[in-house]
Amino acid sequence: MLFKILPKSELAGLFAALSENDIIGPVHKGDNRAGTPLFDFARVTDFDTLRLDFTSTVHSAKRFVLPYRETLSTFRITKDSWEKQVDFNIERPFVLFGLHACDINALNKLDKVLMGSVYPTPYYAAKRRNMFIIGIDCIPLSSCFCRSMGTDTALTGFDLFLTDLGERYFVEIRSAKAFQFLKGLSLSDPADSDHDLYLDKNTAMNAAFVAHVETSDLTKILDLEFESPVWKDWGARCLSCGTCANVCPTCYCYGVEETVALDLSSARKEKQLHSCNLVDFAEVAGGHNFRPESASRLKYRYYHKHRGFVEAFEESLCVGCGRCGRSCLAEINVPDVIASIRHEEMVSDR
């Protein structure tokens, strides 16, 4: 790792150097009814619309590697045969310009499932391998709990990581590619005062955490509390709407559907992200539904994130970004659910 200092005025130059690729970054999407700005990731062509001071985005950057809907293959149907075309749906490399540590870690977790398994997903890998990632430091919202999940720091999975020191950025350079792109810009070595500012930034971040999830022995506690009545209470509130999975940077479940065109001369196989909270998630051929109650579906969402995945990969499938809790109309959020399972007082204010 190389540490450098970049004057803020130089960042537009970096943006320009990268702009032959598709640049995706946080933009201001509007304000909510209380006047709080809402951000989301979008394609950015104008550097001035990039909002690196964003709090969190409503939706994660997941759709750029794992689109909500994606055509997996198309078929040309001839008289008594067919021809299959496969496209991994990537035209140009992506630059993710401004990911917080939680979201970088989320991509690292997705990699484990979608690229590290016996059957890697080529649609995901094609996008993931053609990607340049610039991280940016953050001040957590009251609903963020990445610290509890060990994802408040990104160690891998980025090319560059910026920390805002006021007039300049503290830059961690992780890849040779990143170094190439920075070459023409006026970089300098960090001074002692920059180190101090970096530490101050770190202290401010740590002091801002409100929400917390106690993860010690959590897999075992979840096992013990499998029949806990608490699940019923949460299930009674859940709308089975799937919003939590859609906004989550690490949910990857999907369904596949084949559609034949009206003129019967072509067909298409399409993947659509699904959610374990949806009523038909565990419905199998013949109509039997293994999880007909919302309580059991909600429970399994937590079991996948905080138990099953931990047993398989020794880490949780939740990065503590807090998006699911902020978006859930029924105000169901991870810190409260886990606290209730552990018989603790609920802590977060959403």
Binding site: R63, L239, G242, T243, N246, V279
Partner: peptide, 21 residues
């Protein structure tokens, strides 16, 4: 589809109307 409109709405990355009042 057996699930509600929210599923499609968030896959379209809309800002929820409840947030907009």
């Amino acid at each position: 589809p057996k699930y509600p409109v929210c599923m499609e709405c968030q896959a379209n990355e809309n800002i929820c109307l409840f947030d907009l009042g």
